[in-house]
Each structure stands twice: as C-alpha cells, then as structure tokens.
C-alpha cells in the first residue's frame, strides 16, 4: 500500500526556456496514482510543453521529472522507451496515422510491442473501440471521422497497451457540447475502471473542475494555486478568481502592455 501513497509523477523545480523566452521558471507538482489531475492555465503558457517534458520529448534546463522514481531525463534512451510503454498521450489533434484505418491505428502499438498473435490483438482492439463507442467505425479511415470521433479513436489507441498513465493534451478544445460530454465521461470512467492515472491539461474550467480530483493552476511561468476543485472555487487569490470566473480584466490585464493611451493618440507619427 505504500506504493499507493507515493505520487506516480513528481516534478521538481522544473525550468524550461525556448531560445531566449523563459516558459517555466520553477515548477513543482506531483501527480498521485489513480487520480485525475488537471493542469490549468491560460492559453499560450506552455501546458503542452509541460506534457512533452513529462513524456521526455523535451529536456528541461534544470529540475527533474520523476516517473515512478525514475528520472525521465537522466535515464538512457532504451530505459526511456521502456518507461514510455507505461504511459501514453492523447494529442490535441488526435495524431492518428492518416494512412491506416482506425482498427490498425489502435492495433499499431500492440503489434509493435506486445508480440501477441493477431487474433488476440483483434479482440483487444475491438474491446478498446467498444469502450470509446467506435467499434462500428473500425474500418473507417481517420479522415472520414468527425473531430470528436477522431479524438475518441485516439483515446482508444492511447489505452491500447493498458498504460498506467494517460496524458491528455487539451482534450476538450474545439469540441461541440455533446462530444465534450462524451469525452468527460470517458476520461472519468477510464480513470475509475482501469485505475488509470490521468493528467488533463486544459483551459476549459467547468469541464476540468467537473472531473478532476486535484487541480494545479499554472500562470506566469509558475504554479499559482493548487487544490481540490472545491478549494479552488472558494480561493480568494485574485489571479485565480479571474481565471476561474472568466473575467475579462483583472490581474491578467485585458490590454497588452502599451504606452499611455492618451499620449499615444495625441502623438504625431508613430516613431515619436
């Protein structure tokens, strides 16, 4: 039972910058096993980058990412690949392989890694597709699916190898209310049924607060708040309040930093 207590992923003092631009200054957070953890924040603060750092696709400037005690960026390439078999990622675009059909997409990682015979693979794939409600679409090509269905097919692919953790990159972005509802339900159900550790990165406040067990809010290169959804709703941090309530102006200003409005209007010419 002690294993249950230690978090699956621990991020310690993580810093990352792209060229001159600092994206994260000092991020520390931990992701408990078997729970849905959400990472929220305004768009453009590098939430996807954070997932790629967890997955080992990007290397941080400083700090560590520990997955079940292994330093993701310290291990060898082979060990990293072994660790990646225990996690999977649902990309924002779905990232289905466009040249093969839905069935083969879901079967892809199984054929690559499991070494199981084809008839067992077929059974597993059909089960996964059934779980996301797309068994009937197995023979369709990704381009024939709607956006929501693509994301569900990608979800089926992500859970094909029965990973311990799924990273969801903006799963709700650009979805209509129905597919959004379906996805919310799926993430919650999969998490409970398979005892999956889920990490949801999103800026859709209502959906996230609806399913998450624990929420981190990232803004301005740092974690500004964390807690259960209930705690966050009643927090009085003004920056957090603005984000959760969706107020247009507040600590995150409506205006991009600029010179004084009156002065600029009265000035003659741009360069002065």
């Amino acid at each position: 039972m002690t294993q249950k207590q230690t978090p699956l992923v621990e991020i310690r003092n993580l810093g990352f910058s792209r060229g001159q631009r600092v994206i994260f200054e000092d991020i520390s957070l931990s992701i408990p096993r078997g729970k849905v953890t959400a990472i929220m924040g305004p768009s453009g603060i590098g939430k996807t980058t954070l997932l790629k750092l967890i997955g080992g696709q990007l290397t941080p400037d400083h700090g560590q990412v520990l997955f079940d005690g292994h330093d993701i960026h310290g291990v060898s390439r082979n060990e990293l690949f072994q660790l990646r078999k225990r996690m999977s990622m649902l990309f924002q675009s779905g990232a289905l392989f466009t040249d093969i059909n839905v069935f083969d997409n879901v079967a892809f990682a199984l054929r690559e890694h499991s070494g199981l015979p084809e008839d067992i693979i077929r059974t597993i794939v059909l089960m996964k597709l059934e779980a996301v409600g797309l068994r009937g679409a197995a023979q369709m090509m990704p381009s024939e699916l709607s956006g929501g269905m693509q994301r569900r097919a990608a979800l089926a692919r992500a859970i094909a190898l029965e990973p311990e953790m799924v990273l969801y990159d903006e799963p709700f972005a650009g979805q209509d209310p129905i597919s959004m509802g379906v996805l919310v339900k799926l993430i919650r159900e999969l998490s409970d049924a398979l005892n999956l550790t889920s990490v949801v990165v999103s800026h859709d406040v209502d959906e996230v607060l609806g399913i998450a067990d624990y929420v981190y809010v990232v803004a301005g290169k740092k974690v500004i708040a964390h807690g259960t959804p209930e705690e966050l709703k009643h927090a009085d941090n003004p920056q957090l309040k603005q984000f959760i309530q969706g107020a247009p102006d507040g600590p995150v200003p409506f205006h991009y930093p600029a010179r004084d409005y009156q002065q600029e209007l009265l000035a003659k010419g741009v360069g002065k």
């Binding site: 790629k52 997955g55 696709q57 690949f81 072994q82 990646r84 078999k85 996690m87 999977s88 990622m89 990309f91 924002q92 675009s93 990232a95 289905l96 392989f97 466009t98 892809f108 990682a109 690559e112 890694h113 190898l161």
Partner: peptide, 13 residues
C-alpha cells in the same frame, strides 16, 4: 499533425 510525436510517446522510434 503530431504523428511523429505520437510515435515517440508509443515508444516507437
């Protein structure tokens, strides 16, 4: 379309 990234995350080079 992140297909390459997704291969990497599936532990396929």
């Amino acid at each position: 379309t992140e297909q390459l990234s997704s291969l990497e995350m599936m532990a396929i080079d």
